[in-house]
Every structure is written in structure tokens, then in C-alpha cells.
Amino acid sequence: MSPLSYCTNVHPAEDLPGVLAQLDRYAEPVRRLVGVDVLGLGLWLPAVLAHELAESPELRAKLRAELDARGLEVRTLNAFPYGGFHDEVVKHSVYRPEWTDRARLRYTVDCALVLGDLLPDAATYGSISTLPLAWRTPWSDADDEAATAAFAELTGALDGMAAASGRPIRLAVEPEPGCVLDTVADAVAWLAPRVDPRYVGLCLDTCHLAVSFADPAATVASIHAAGLAVVKVQASAALQVENPGSEEARAALADFTEPRYLHQVRERTATGTVLAADDLPEAMTDLPGREPWRVHFHVPLHARPAAPLSATTDVLRTAIAALESTVDDMPHVEVETYTWSVLPETAGNGGDTALIRGIAAELRWAGANLLELGGVR
């Protein structure tokens, strides 16, 4: 069985009382609605809170006890956003600090220390997803060297933790359009000669994978051929637009244009060239719109957008099937639809009840369509 979780970066909380409150307000009601005894959380801890917990064994024990009391467990952390993930405008700030900044290294080490004490007894490893080094500009050879050194220092810290606990914490680097490691191919090429694969591998975000127009099965094969592993899957779907130049499609896409998050767009031409825009408003003016688009906008797995839009859930299914046929033990699978508050059909509507029902529906969809995941259906 592969552990299934949902990512709590969908909930705004920047301190421990906020995180504990969201367990009562959202996570436990989701667990009850899904109908399982234990539900996995892909916990997001802002940097200030991660450091507070890393400094205090007592606070870590308190958090573990609060999780246990509600039938919740944590095998994976999302350490991509450093903080402020629900600010009015996030956009490019989500990529800071970069892996050239020691603050990113400290944050990741703090997360690893915390996760080591949160892991359930049955877990064989813990995973932490992280950003693909930085946004692509500016990036220099000196930056490359600094990031390489940071990964080496992190690996030393993770090796020491594994020796002490007997269970490794593994970093999962998450390629994202527009970043230094834009595609999985970029990430494999950068990581393979630099990292210890016992501690560093890939986070396969299937929304990002779809936006890149890469073949999912070939992508999974390329990761393993390079001696790396998929440490974690973020089960997610992108918006797809078959005819982005049509008036109907333009009107539908306008509803997804919002100010908080960056929504990168890719258009694949008839010759196979992939054209890029860094955000949806830019795509609406700069891309030709003659061939299909894929948009970095995480949409709920269980609910297809209304025509003429669709979702790339087939990419997710194919990637999971490729992993199942490649590895003996599946990686952690985390449902990461963080966009509920900015979806056109949900923005400002439905409140907590709609969000709880939506997350539960996604988890049931994942259980029914992807894997036999710990009894989740």
C-alpha cells in the first residue's frame, strides 16, 4: 500500500495554534467524511513554525499527540512555500528564499528534524518536497555552485539523522515551469551527478508534468534510468484548453485569472515546440493560441472544469501506472489542490463545509482511480 495524504497548504496557518485549529476545523472532519480510521496529511509548516518545533522536543511531542488523538498521521511535509502562502499576492515570492540562501537550507533541516518525530511507527521513510532551486532568472554559475554545496550539506545532516533514527528523511525536488529546473528532464540532468540518491530524489507533481507536455511513462523511466527515485508524487491536475483562441475559451479562461498565484501556460505547436508564458494574463496576449494550452492551475481531481476547458487527470493516471510497473514500493502520494480559495466556482462561496466536502471527494477519487491506498475509496 502507498500512503495517501492531502496537503495542508490549502489552509492558511502560520503558527502552532493555527495548525492545531486546522486539524479540528478541516482535517478531522475530512477523515470522518472519507470514512477511514487514519488519514494522512502532507503537512505544510511555515519556516518560523518549523524552527520553533525543531528547537523544542516538547512541542514536537505535543503536535504528534494532537495528530494521534484525531486519527491523523504525517509521512511527508511540503517545504516549498517558506511562508505567507495565503498572502493577497504570492506569485514569484513562493520561490524565495532560493537554494542559494542558507535560510532555505535551515528551513529544510528544521523540517527534517520535525518530520523525524512525527513519522508513524509503520513508516519506512519520510519525504519533504522542495522548490526546484529558484525562479530561472537571475541564475549564475556561482548560484549553481552555492546550491550544489547546500544540497551536500543537507545530505550530511540527513545522513546523521538516519543513522540516529534508522529511518531516512528524503528530499523530493519538485520541477516547476519557469524555474531553474523547469522540467523533470532538467531536474534529472542537474541532480544525477550531484546528489546522493539515498536522500535526494524527485517530487513528481503531475500538474507540472502535464504543463510541460512531457510523456508521463517516459518521464518515470528516465528518472529511474538516471539512478534517481520518485520520492513523492503530488497528485494534481492542470487546466487544459484544446482551442485557446476561441471566444468561448477566452471567456472561460478569464474566470481563472486571479491575482494570488502564478499560473504558467504552455502551448505545444504542431511541430512539437512548446511555447511559454509565465502567467495566464501574459498568455492571453502573447501566445498564438492556435494549438492546445496547458495551464498551471491545480483543479480538483474529481470535478472536471466545464467545457470548453478540461483537466489533465489522464496524465496523473498514466504517471501512477508507470510507477506501479516500475517500483516495488510506491512513493508517498499527496493530493495538492491548494487553489480552492481562488477557483471560479468556489471563490468566496461554500465556506468550510464546501472545502471539507471537496477535499474528501478528491481523496475518494484518488483511492478509486489511482491505487489501493490504505482503504481510502
Rank of each mutant, 00 (worst) to 15 (best):
M1C: 13
Y6W: 15
C7M: 12
T8Q: 06
V10E: 03
A13P: 02
L16T: 09
P17F: 13
Q22P: 09
L23A: 10
L23W: 00
V30T: 08
L33N: 10
V36T: 14
D37G: 15
G40C: 01
L41T: 03
G42F: 01
A50N: 09
H51C: 11
H51N: 12
E55Y: 11
S56L: 10
P57A: 13
L59H: 12
R60A: 10
A61D: 14
L63K: 06
E73M: 13
T76R: 05
G83V: 05
F85A: 14
D87P: 04
V89L: 13
S93F: 08
P97T: 06
D101F: 02
R102C: 07
R104W: 03
R104F: 00
R104I: 03
L105I: 08
R106I: 07
Y107E: 04
A112K: 00
A112S: 11
L115Y: 03
D117Q: 11
L118T: 02
P120F: 00
D121Q: 15
A122I: 10
A122K: 11
A123C: 06
T124P: 10
G126R: 00
I128W: 02
T130D: 05
P132K: 02
L133A: 01
W139V: 02
W139K: 02
A142V: 05
A142D: 15
A142M: 00
A146F: 02
T148W: 04
A149P: 03
T155K: 07
M161D: 06
A164K: 11
S165E: 14
G166C: 10
R167Q: 13
L171I: 14
P175V: 09
P177R: 01
C179F: 05
V180C: 11
V180Y: 05
T183Q: 10
A185G: 14
V188Y: 05
L191H: 02
L191N: 01
A192S: 14
P193Q: 06
V195N: 00
V200F: 01
L204C: 08
L204F: 11
D205N: 14
D205E: 04
T206H: 01
T206P: 01
V211N: 01
T219P: 03
I223E: 03
I223A: 00
G227Y: 14
V230K: 03
K232P: 01
V233P: 00
S236E: 13
A237S: 15
S246M: 08
E247I: 12
A251P: 07
H263C: 12
V274K: 05
L275M: 11
A277T: 06
D278P: 10
D279A: 09
D279V: 06
L280S: 07
E282V: 15
L287M: 12
E291V: 08
W293C: 00
W293V: 03
R294D: 05
V295D: 01
F297A: 08
V299T: 09
A306G: 12
P308S: 12
A311D: 15
L316N: 04
L316Q: 02
A319Y: 04
A319V: 08
A321M: 08
L323G: 03
E324I: 12
P331D: 06
W340R: 06
L343F: 07
T346C: 13
N349D: 14
G350R: 00
G351C: 08
T353H: 14
I356C: 05
I356A: 09
G358T: 06
A361E: 15
W365M: 10
N369F: 12
L370Y: 03
L370P: 00
G374W: 08
V376S: 06
R377L: 13
